[in-house]
Design a protein around this nucleic acid. Structure first.
Lengths: 229, 229
DNA sequence: CAAATGACAAATATTAATATTTGTCATTTG
DNA sequence: CAAATGACAAATATTAATATTTGTCATTTG
């Protein structure tokens, strides 16, 4: 009984744990991936991504550094794992909460979602600078990680856009293309390469103005020009 | 007579020359700013922006490095001057040619202008990598230089937008805001921080898709929904 | 006498010697 | 016997000594 419960406690978060069920007698001595990630995150925040060694992380855990290599095949993979968890927790999780809210104003819902993405990125750039730097560094090298992250966001935007189309508020064009274009057209406001431009207060108005542009476009439609009014 | 002509020859390009008119007997010995910039550009292309010293530039010219400091107060100012001239020649000049063309399709004209900007940036990133790197480095430090460059482009876009509004093709909203928003919404395609993402072939479709988005917007207007058709 | 020089100090970059870190794997531990 | 260890070589980073570069300015040059 307690066997099962313990296993559930240990194996949360979808991690592929080192087999934790046979011989459960040593529960505290079994090192989990998330314990390593906790220690890595703590160490990264202390020393910064450029000064943190695998040895430092091992020291934090009071173990041999060789042990970490039994869980992550390289320093780079460890950095990616830390970044992936950080992105999931700090960016994807709060965004998912917004995405799943009920609404009868899909346009506002979409704006809410996108603006939250921007706010989160800009907040963490400022208040969790070491981890944000880590994220910026890792995603510049790992196309895989950034692709997964971006696709996750575009996927959620797809759903919101779909709701807008159903209610005849959004033009019925290729959804995925639209989601991607909205994401890219706002790169300046959420891409880490632009972080140094976020200090300026004018950034808030710029975001609103770009949002207005992509909402209505600059083109005066034929309806407005000829048929109507 | 030949005095005046020589002066004109020497003082082209709007440079503030070291007074070249009194005592013209030594015409070849007078060092012009553009000669320094030529040598700097040549040296920068050879050694790259991180390995080029003021001494290297002086060597290229066969002069003492102290002389360069009589024309530019610091290495950084020299780098800025090289970058500014490069931008004017490689980006602003060809853009101005397009901007000044006559057209009866202002939307196409605007697209043409913006796509040329993107094409030029992407071409020089690939085929003049040292100077492009120089530009990327300098603009990250000098807000002044990048502001001037960006404002120049936005100014030219203003004119094109104005033509579109006159012909009732572009919505009559605040022109400057619109120009800036179009510029920012396409940052991914012309901002040097994104240069490493330009390798991917998919970038061409992304540009077209973002252009379509900012042209028409994603919002289904009331005209389309209710009044018309 | 305007323009260039080159000697100089301070700042910065390079080099070479030294130390640490990364990643592996045979051995140890519980 | 699964998990951890720690000794080890190769790669990378740090340090300290050395060399170059930056920027100034009194002196020289034409």
């Amino acid at each position: 009984m307690s066997f099962v419960i313990l296993c559930v406690n240990y194996c949360t978060g979808g991690e592929k744990q080192p087999v934790c069920c046979p011989s459960m007698n040593k529960k505290t001595s079994i090192l989990s991936k998330s314990e390593i990630l906790d220690a890595a995150e703590k160490t990264l925040r202390r020393f910064g991504p450029d000064k943190t060694s695998v040895t430092d992380v091992a020291k934090e855990l009071g173990i041999s550094h060789g042990t970490i290599y039994r869980h992550y095949p390289s320093k780079e993979k460890l950095r990616e794992a830390v970044t992936e968890r950080w992105l999931d927790e700090k960016i994807i999780f709060p965004l998912t909460e917004i995405a799943e809210m009920e609404t009868n104003d899909p346009i506002h819902h979409l704006k809410n979602y996108l603006f939250k993405l921007i706010e989160l990125k800009q907040t963490y750039a400022k208040y969790d600078p070491e981890m944000f730097k880590m994220y910026a560094e890792v995603t510049e090298h790992s196309a895989e990680l950034i692709d997964e992250h971006v696709n996750h966001i575009i996927e959620q935007m797809n759903v919101l856009i779909h709701q807008g189309i159903e209610r005849h508020l959004i033009q019925n064009i290729e959804i995925r293309t639209l989601a991607r274009s909205i994401f890219y057209a706002t790169s300046r406001f959420h891409h880490p390469a632009h972080a140094y431009e976020w200090e300026n207060e004018s950034i808030k108005k710029e975001i609103e103005d770009v949002w207005t542009l992509i909402t209505y476009g600059f083109f005066k439609s034929y309806q407005e020009k000829d048929d109507c009014k």
